[in-house]
Structure formats: C-alpha cells, structure tokens
C-alpha cells in the first residue's frame, strides 16, 4: 500500500513538473495568391514548463519583414492588431496561432508560398526571468 502511495506521488509529481521545453507543433502557412505580397504563419505553441514565456519576434528568409498580429473581430469589423508586447505563452498553457486569430504576419514575401513548400522560421522567446532563446522550425505551405 505504502509503495503504491509513493508511486502515485511520483507520477503526480512528474505530471505537475511538466516537460522541460517549449514545443512548436504543426507550423504552416496558406498558399499565397499571385500578386499578394503578404502571408501568415500559424502553429501551436505548447509550454509545459513552470516558466511563463513570451514569443517576442519571428524571422525568416521567406519575408522581408515579420510582425506578430492578432486578427480580431470588433463589432463585426475585422481588424489587425499588432502585438507590440509579443504573444504570451504562460506556463502549462498552449497557445494556438490560427486563421482569424493570432498569426505571424509576413510582409513583402520573398519566397514562393506555393503548396508543399517548406519555409524555415526562427522564433525568439523571452521567459519570465528575462532570458531569451530561439527556436528553429519549418513551416509547410498548404491549403486548409
């Protein structure tokens, strides 16, 4: 009995302390229409750690400029709000960048955002202690 109790405590402790790193899942972008100069990247950011993180910037050779944006519907009007203070990813939470919401806006795209293309992006995060780190990922271009 005592052994089981200890085992339970160990399992619960392992589950609560969470993983040790951010995970970036399913990065993608919509194919860009001919003539369009902008595009957007989407993904899911999971923060299993005990430390709050903030996505502060993104960089990619696929675009001249990237900005963090939120498409928000206010009184039926869709407007884009630049996330000046970054996108917070609190400890033990998952934040999804998806169409009609948070996204990484690509301004003056350089790469061809054609179906099946793979585009490298570097994301910069700053954690609650003020330490910054970068994450590399590859987004796939597909129509969803």
């Amino acid at each position: 009995m005592k052994r089981y109790l200890l085992l339970t405590i160990a399992v619960v402790a392992a589950a609560c302390s969470g993983g040790d790193a951010l995970s970036l899942e399913d990065p993608w972008a919509r194919p860009s229409p001919t003539g369009a100069t902008t595009a957007a990247f989407f993904m899911t950011i999971d923060n299993p750690t005990d430390t709050d993180e903030t996505l502060v910037s993104a960089a990619t050779d696929a675009c001249r400029v990237t900005e963090l944006h939120l498409s928000a519907m206010v009184d039926g009007v869709m407007s884009m709000q630049r996330q000046e203070n970054g996108i917070p990813v609190p400890a033990s939470e998952t934040v999804t960048l998806a169409p009609g919401g948070l996204h990484i806006m690509c301004i003056d795209r350089i790469a061809d955002f054609a179906e099946g293309e793979e585009l490298d992006i570097t994301l910069e995060f700053v954690d609650a202690n003020g330490d910054s780190h970068t994450e590399e990922l590859t987004a796939v271009v597909e129509d969803r």
């Binding site: 229409p33 369009a36 100069t37 595009a39 957007a40 884009m80 169409p99 301004i107």
Partner: peptide
C-alpha cells in the same frame, strides 16, 4: 483587399 494577410485569403479559400 489583396494586402490582407490572414482573413481575406482564408475567406476566399
């Protein structure tokens, strides 16, 4: 509009 990065291409698609 064509400069629209997110919502317009999503809706048109």
């Amino acid at each position: 509009y064509t400069f629209c990065p997110d919502v317009c291409p999503t809706t048109l698609s």
